[in-house]
């Protein structure tokens, strides 16, 4: 009996001590993690699992309230709201995750170079960061989309640039704190190059807060993407996006409130869940303790 359960116990213990375990075994992290997992699965498999095609119009069935046939009702063209929300998850997640990933990568590179080497480059980067920091992200994104033109790719680019300052600044601060550590001096004294020090030692040590910040920014990016979509600057019809759905539903808010309410709920719940997951991540990574120890 004991011999048979031993491998299972070992796996369980390992999982409980791992980062994933520390996040997912808390109430917050577990609920949020499960929700996000389901959402990602829906986004990935939307073409096969939606009850109706997202663009199937049926004008006689327009503006129907939720029913057994259309769980979340139909919109002004008779399209199934649930199917469109499921497709909208694709747009929302892909845009925000791609944009924030690009933003994190570029921001870390800029911030690390500025923090480690200092000098003129650092001053230039800091000036640019401070400048963009003084505008709200939404304004930066709007200006950029206005310049590049609306569409999925320009939305991604605009969001990526809007959040760049945040990650650059965070990474720079982390690297500046870490580069005085004895192990950096020790590594240099053993003949390591600056590149080795930055990529193998400084970046991994600076990673935890940046990951959490990236996680929380992904939630903000979903709102930003929905906002741009609401203004018709994001994904172009007929590609469904939560923001665009709310925009079209806003005209019918009193006659067919489900058209605007359900995509709005999707945005709200997703953002709350991402933030809960971020909270759980902060605890699991013990970031504040890390910062305290330097």
């Amino acid at each position: 009996m004991t011999a048979a359960t031993a491998p299972h116990d070992h796996f369980w213990l390992t999982f409980r001590r791992s980062l994933a375990g520390k996040v997912l075994l808390t109430p917050k992290g577990g609920v949020a993690g499960a929700y996000l997992l389901v959402l990602v699965l829906i986004a990935l498999t939307a073409p096969w699992i939606t009850p109706y095609p997202f663009d199937q119009q049926a004008l006689p069935l327009a503006n129907r309230p939720p029913s057994l046939a259309n769980w979340l009702g139909t919109d002004e063209f008779g399209r199934d709201v649930l199917s469109r929300i499921m497709y909208g998850a694709r747009t929302s997640l892909s845009v925000s995750v791609t944009a924030i990933s690009v933003s994190v990568l570029v921001g870390m590179a800029l911030g690390a170079a500025a923090g480690y080497f200092g000098g003129m480059f650092d001053r230039g980067v800091t000036a640019a960061v401070d400048l963009s920091w003084s505008f709200p992200e939404i304004l930066i994104a709007l200006i950029l989309v206005a310049i590049i033109g609306p569409g999925l790719h320009s939305t991604m680019l605009a969001i990526a640039i809007a959040y760049l300052a945040q990650f650059t600044r965070l990474t720079r601060a982390q690297i500046m704190g870490l580069k005085g550590e004895t192990y950096i001096e020790a590594t240099l004294s053993l003949g390591a190059s600056h590149g080795h020090v930055v990529f193998r030692h400084l970046m991994p040590n600076a990673l935890a807060p940046v990951i959490v910040c990236g996680m929380l920014a992904t939630g903000d990016a979903i709102i930003l993407e929905a906002t741009l979509g609401f203004f018709g600057l994001g994904a172009q019809p007929p590609v469904p996006s939560w923001g665009a759905m709310m925009s079209s539903g806003s005209a019918l808010i009193f006659t067919a409130p489900w058209i605007i309410v359900f995509p709005g709920l999707a945005v709200a719940i997703t953002v709350v869940m991402i933030n809960l997951f971020g909270d759980a991540l902060i605890r699991a990574l013990d970031i504040r303790a890390n910062l305290r120890e330097g």
Binding site: E181, T182, Y183, E185, A186, T187, L188, S189, L190, G191, A192, S193, R200, H201, P204, N205
Partner: peptide, 24 residues
């Protein structure tokens, strides 16, 4: 100098508590 450091001249730092990269 970088090729010499660690190869021919090695340095042992003051505080072993902080001389190792905590995440490696």
């Amino acid at each position: 100098f970088r090729r010499l450091r660690g190869r021919r001249i090695a340095f042992i730092t003051q505080n072993p508590m902080t001389s190792l990269d905590p995440v490696m």
